[in-house]
Structure formats: structure tokens, C-alpha cells
């Protein structure tokens, strides 16, 4: 194995990045009124392999402990750290600094359309309320079978894409319709409904379709595709919404 002189084995290159964070403290700070939102810049030395989340950790642990954000698993599974990074919704734990043009300041804002609680933390309750409304659980009639409910691989494939959702809200808060109309169920709730509507074992399709046939339902979708592009799981969100629309117009699943 050849070893170059300037980059010894195991050493990771570092890069200096500027992180611009949209901050808000509901209690105010000595310099800021309660609830005032403002931008603050931090300079961080990071590894070339670091993600935005690592930079936020560095800031919180070494520079300003008051910086507030959500994260849990830090590996793109729990869906806690959706943020607007360089004006696009992404998971901070899946956005590599080196992919974000680190020569310019990287902006980090809370996701839009939900009330900001503090800094990058938003109140997710309206988002979860929409999800609960579409009944995200198996609905059946009659007696529970004594064995598992069987399903063909073809039937399973119909809703495979929408099972990947981690409820991070990146799609819903990327939606221009949701920004202006908080009544809209939003892409995520429709994805959640799609997962059961197209499940051959489920019998609650028409209850869910009726909910989504509402004026705040699927017909509010204007196919801007922001949701599909924002989804960190690669779900074709707009396609799922279109399939629900088609189920409503044709009655076919």
C-alpha cells in the first residue's frame, strides 16, 4: 500500500466551516427580546467526513450550550433532526458538510410551517395530529385469525415505498401548500394513509379515503414535488399522493 507524505494513513482531513443558525429563545437573552429570531454565526473546525449534526454538536458542546435542537439516533432512522439546511429540508445527520459547499456559510433553520419552540426545535403536534387523523393502524372486521394474515409479494410491493416513512416532517414542512394552509393534512399524513389504503389486509380504506377526500385532503396537492425531493428516505411522496387521488376517482387500489 502506498502512503503519501502529506496524508498519513488514518488521518482525516479537516475543514473550517461557518454555520449560520436561525435562533430563537422564548425567554430572551441579555441581548435579545423573548421570542425574537435572529441569525448567529459559528466557526467550526470539522472533519471532512463530518455531518451538519456533528458541527451542531461541536457548537453545543464547546461553544454555546444553549443551542437547542433535536436528535436521537443520529443515523437517519429516528427522524428527529429534520432541519432546513441551505434552504432545503434534510436530516442534519445525513447531510455531509463536504456536500454543502463548505467554503460558504452553511445556513441551518428550523423546518417551516410549524411553530418554533426554541432555536431549531419546532412543535410537531399539528403534524402528528394530522397523522393520527388518517388512522395509522390496521383496521379489520370479524374475528382475529389464529395465524398471521397472509399477503402475496405483489400485494406487499404496492405499499412498500410508503412503509419507509420515519415521520421526520421534512416533506410536510417543504410543501408550499402546507406553509400557507396549516389545515392541509400534508404529504406525510397522506403517505401514512397510503401505507394502509394499499395494504390488502386492511379494511379501513374507505374511512381513510373519505378523510383525505376532504377539502384539506389530497386535492390540496399542487404537485410542486418539494416533498419528494426533501424525503430523506427517498419515498416518492408525490407518487403516493397521486395514487390516493386515483383511488378516489377510480375506486381501484
Amino acid at each position: 500500500m502506498t502512503v503519501t507524505e502529506d496524508a498519513p494513513v488514518g488521518e482525516i482531513a479537516t475543514l473550517n466551516v461557518t454555520i449560520r443558525i436561525k435562533r430563537m429563545n422564548p425567554e430572551g437573552t441579555p441581548a435579545r427580546a423573548p421570542g425574537e429570531s435572529y441569525w448567529e454565526e459559528f466557526h467550526v473546525e470539522a472533519h471532512a467526513t463530518d455531518r451538519v449534526l456533528d458541527a451542531l454538536h461541536t457548537i453545543k458542546w464547546q461553544e454555546d450550550g444553549s443551542l437547542t435542537f433535536r436528535r436521537s439516533c443520529a443515523h437517519g432512522v429516528c427522524g428527529s433532526d429534520a432541519m432546513r439546511i441551505n434552504a432545503k429540508n434534510r436530516l442534519a445527520c445525513k447531510a455531509l458538510l463536504k456536500d454543502l459547499n463548505p467554503s460558504r456559510p452553511i445556513t441551518v433553520e428550523p423546518i417551516a410551517g410549524l411553530p418554533v419552540v426554541k432555536d431549531l426545535v419546532v412543535d410537531m403536534e399539528p403534524f402528528f395530529a394530522s397523522y393520527r387523523e388518517i388512522m395509522p393502524f390496521l383496521v379489520t372486521t370479524g374475528h382475529a385469525p389464529t395465524r398471521e394474515r397472509l399477503q402475496s409479494p405483489e400485494d406487499r410491493a404496492k405499499f412498500d415505498d410508503t412503509t419507509k416513512c420515519i415521520l421526520c416532517a421534512a416533506c410536510t414542512t417543504a410543501c408550499p401548500v402546507f406553509w400557507t394552509d396549516g389545515q392541509y393534512f400534508g404529504p406525510q399524513a397522506i403517505v401514512g394513509a397510503h401505507r394502509f389504503i394499499f395494504d390488502s389486509r386492511d379494511e379501513g380504506q374507505w374511512d381513510r379515503l373519505e378523510i383525505l377526500n376532504d377539502k384539506a385532503g389530497v386535492w390540496k396537492c399542487r404537485t410542486a414535488f418539494n416533498c419528494t425531493e426533501a424525503c430523506p428516505r427517498g419515498i416518492e411522496v408525490t407518487k403516493a399522493i397521486s395514487e390516493v387521488k386515483r383511488a378516489l376517482t377510480t375506486g381501484e387500489f
Binding site: 429570531s37 441551505n86 433553520e109 408550499p176 414535488f225 418539494n226 408525490t238
Partner: peptide, 21 residues
């Protein structure tokens, strides 16, 4: 939109939604 609000960097689909409106 709140002051200092940055535009969302949507792609063609979002801009065509604006054009259509």
C-alpha cells in the same frame, strides 16, 4: 413570512407551481 426568512430552494416543480399561480 417572518423577517429574515430565507426562500426554500425548491426545484422545477416548485417554480412551476409559482408560475401557475
Amino acid at each position: 413570512m417572518s423577517p429574515g426568512h430565507m426562500l426554500y430552494r425548491g426545484r422545477e416543480g416548485m417554480w412551476m407551481w409559482v408560475v401557475h399561480r
